[in-house]
C-alpha cells in the first residue's frame, strides 16, 4: 500500500514538471513582450524593466530561475499588479475559491449519490425517469447558463437572494454560487451512481446475498454501496477539475473576488506571470487531489490494496 502510494507520488512529479515546462514555454513564445501596448519608454527604463523581470537572460536561465522559484512557492512578481507577487495574489484569493469549491463538492456528492441511489432502486419508475431527465439536463446545460438564469430567477425576479457579492454578507450570498457550481456535478454523480448501483445489484454476489435472505436495504448497505461508489470516487478527479473550471465562470457571474476572477482578469489584461502562476497552481492542485483520490481508491478496493 505504501509502495503503491509512493509510486503514484513519483508518477505525479513528471506530470507537474511537464505542466510547468509547457506553460512556461507557451508564455515565452508569446509574440512581443508584455509591455508592448504601453507608451514608448526611454531605452534606459526599458532596460531596467527588462532587468527587473530578468528578460535579459537566456531562456534556459529564465526557466531555471522560474523553476527554482516555483519550488519555493515563489511565482515571481505580477506584471500588472505592480506591488504584488503572484504568490501573494494567489494566497489572498484562493481561500474564498476553496470555500465555495469545497462546499459545492460536498453538496454535489450528497445530493448526487442520494438521487442516484433512489433512481437505481426505483429503476424504470416515474421517480427514476424524473431524476434521470433532470440529470441529463444538468449535464447538458453549461454552468455559464445555469448561473445567470438562477440569478435572473431568484435575485432579479423573485428577490429572494442577493445577486452579487459585494454589498451583501452572510451565507445568503454563498448559496447561488455554490448551487450553480454543484448542479452539473450533481447530475454527473447521480447518473454515475445509478448506473453503477444497477450494475452491482445485477452482479452474482448480490444474487448470493438475496439467496441468503438479506433484504434490499441490507444488501445495499452491506454489499452493494461500497463497490457502487468506487466509480463515483474515481470521478472525483475530473469533478474537481470541472469545479475549478466552473469557479472561473461563477466568480465572474457573481463578482466574487476569488482566484478564478483574478485568472480571467489576468487573461484579459495579459498579465503573463499571474496567468502562468495560476495555471501551475491549478495543475498542482488537480494533480495532488487526483493523487489523493487514487490512494483512497486503493484503500477501499482490497484487490488493489493487496498488490
Amino acid at each position: 500500500m505504501l509502495r503503491y502510494t509512493l509510486l503514484r507520488l513519483l508518477g505525479a512529479i513528471p506530470t507537474l514538471l511537464l505542466v510547468i515546462v509547457l506553460a512556461f514555454l507557451l508564455v515565452h513564445a508569446a509574440p512581443g513582450g508584455p509591455f508592448d501596448d504601453e507608451r514608448v519608454l526611454p531605452p534606459e527604463i526599458a532596460a531596467n524593466i527588462a532587468a527587473y523581470y530578468h528578460l535579459d537572460e537566456t531562456l534556459p536561465q529564465q526557466f531555471w530561475r522560474y523553476l527554482s522559484g516555483v519550488v519555493r512557492g515563489d511565482f515571481g512578481p505580477s506584471y500588472r499588479y505592480r506591488d504584488h507577487t503572484v504568490s501573494q495574489l494567489i494566497g489572498s484569493a484562493f481561500p474564498l475559491s476553496l470555500k465555495i469549491g469545497a462546499l459545492s463538492m460536498l453538496l454535489a456528492v450528497i445530493v448526487g449519490v442520494g438521487a442516484g441511489i433512489v433512481a437505481a432502486l426505483r429503476q424504470n419508475t416515474v421517480a427514476d425517469r424524473v431524476v434521470m431527465t433532470v440529470a441529463m439536463t444538468g449535464i447538458s446545460i453549461p454552468i455559464f447558463v445555469v448561473a445567470p438564469v438562477l440569478v435572473l430567477l431568484f435575485a432579479v425576479k423573485l428577490h429572494w437572494l442577493p445577486a452579487g457579492w459585494s454589498g451583501n454578507a452572510g451565507y445568503a450570498r454563498l448559496l447561488l454560487p455554490v448551487v450553480s457550481l454543484a448542479l452539473p456535478q450533481i447530475a454527473y454523480i447521480a447518473r454515475l451512481t445509478r448506473a453503477s448501483l444497477i450494475d452491482v445489484l445485477g452482479s452474482d454476489f448480490v444474487r448470493t446475498a438475496k439467496a441468503q435472505g438479506l433484504g434490499i436495504v441490507a444488501i445495499v448497505r452491506f454489499h452493494a454501496l461500497k463497490p457502487a461508489l468506487l466509480p463515483v470516487l474515481s470521478f472525483m478527479g475530473p469533478a474537481i477539475a470541472a469545479v475549478l473550471t466552473g469557479s472561473v465562470v461563477v466568480e465572474e457571474v457573481f463578482g466574487i473576488p476569488g482566484l478564478g476572477q483574478f485568472f480571467v482578469r489576468g487573461a484579459l489584461n495579459r498579465d503573463y506571470t499571474l496567468v502562468l502562476g495560476i495555471v501551475i497552481f491549478y495543475a498542482a492542485l488537480i494533480i495532488v487531489l487526483n493523487l489523493i483520490v487514487d490512494v483512497l481508491y486503493g484503500v477501499i478496493d482490497p484487490r488493489i490494496r493487496h498488490r
Binding site: 454476489f205 448470493t208 477501499i300
Partner: peptide, 11 residues
C-alpha cells in the same frame, strides 16, 4: 452457485 469468484463479494 457455479462460480465462487463471482458469487462472493470481492470487497
Amino acid at each position: 452457485f457455479q462460480d465462487p469468484l463471482q458469487a462472493l463479494n470481492p470487497y
